[in-house]
Amino acid sequence: MTDPPLLLDTHIHLDHPAMREDLARHVAEANKCGVSRFLLPGVTDESWDGLLAVTAATQGALAAPGIHPQAAHRWDSSCAERLSDLLERPEVVAVGEIGLDGYPGLPPMEVQESAFRAQLRLAVAAQRPVIIHCRKALGRLFGILKEEEAAQVGGIMHAFAGSVELARQAVEMNFALGFGGVLTYPNARRAPQVFCELPAEWLVLETDAPDMAPHPHRGETNRPAWLKLIACRAAELRGWSLEQTARITTANACRILNLVSMDNPG
């Protein structure tokens, strides 16, 4: 019996209550499916302690603390100082998830932009990549990334939902594109198109668990082990084997996040 391919989940909320209540089982199931590394993005400063505790308790887990645009109103000098300190820790490999969100009822866009710029500047100063969240604001977000010279550190566009043209602009700024459950939906059109047309070296995989469960589990609580379902769909779309898919996307994630390759841990 061969070992399962080694996969890296570039966006998973293992610190979410839905995951933490049975964390050991979720991680064990994922490991059996070949998922052996996890990047845990932050949402708000209130959750950073829990994020780091789960990271410390989970083999293969890494942290990307930050303040999500939905919590941008919480950003202040105290958050900035604390995040700057966290970026000196070896398990903290990125800043995330940060960005802009144009959905109604969220903090005003000027508040989001202020928090986003400040976190980008910390990331650039610390030479850490960033994990980007963006909905209904890609044009403005790309403008800010250019103004703040974020290409110096690059990162990952989480759950990218833009066009092929915008995806290519992201790549030009040193950003990989994260693909998750949407890639598997039978009615999905844009995500598969972007996934097929981008250069292979800019593709990474994610679950966003406990959200965004892949087909045929759409609407259920997502699980870390289901990254393999996403990888299988990715393989089908590109004409790769599952092993090729794991090797390519994991190598891409390691490069973008400045990690030692799982194939060469020394």
Rank of each mutant, 00 (worst) to 15 (best):
E172M: 15
R189A: 11
E113I: 10
E220S: 15
A150C: 10
E149C: 04
L7M: 10
L122V: 06
F116Q: 01
P129E: 12
G105T: 07
E201P: 07
P4D: 05
L7R: 02
V27I: 14
Q59K: 05
D3R: 03
G102S: 11
C196Q: 14
F116K: 05
L39D: 00
S84R: 10
V92I: 01
L23E: 14
A137V: 11
L6E: 00
L183C: 02
A57W: 06
A251G: 14
R189T: 15
D85H: 09
A176E: 06
K136Y: 12
G42A: 12
S36F: 10
C33F: 06
V182W: 09
L177H: 15
A191D: 09
D22E: 15
L87D: 00
E220Y: 12
L166W: 14
T10G: 02
T249R: 09
W75I: 01
S163A: 04
L229G: 03
V130Y: 08
T250S: 09
V153P: 10
N187G: 08
E29Q: 12
N31D: 11
E172Y: 13
R25A: 13
K136P: 08
P210R: 08
R74P: 05
E149D: 13
P41W: 08
R74Q: 05
P108T: 02
E206G: 08
L229R: 13
E91T: 04
P108A: 07
T221N: 05
L237M: 07
C254Y: 09
I12W: 13
N264M: 00
N252D: 14
D45F: 01
S36G: 15
G154E: 14
G181T: 14
L7T: 11
V35E: 08
S78V: 09
I131R: 01
P90V: 00
G34E: 01
Q70M: 09
M262Q: 09
H73I: 00
A235Q: 15
R190I: 13
L242R: 03
T249A: 08
N264P: 07
G60N: 11
M262L: 15
E206Q: 03
L122C: 01
A123T: 09
G180K: 02
E236K: 13
I67G: 07
R168D: 15
R140I: 14
V204R: 00
L122K: 04
V153G: 02
T207E: 03
I230Q: 06
T221H: 02
G266Q: 13
V27W: 03
A71S: 04
D15H: 10
F160Y: 13
H158T: 11
M109Q: 06
W202S: 11
A123W: 09
R189Q: 12
V204P: 12
P17Y: 08
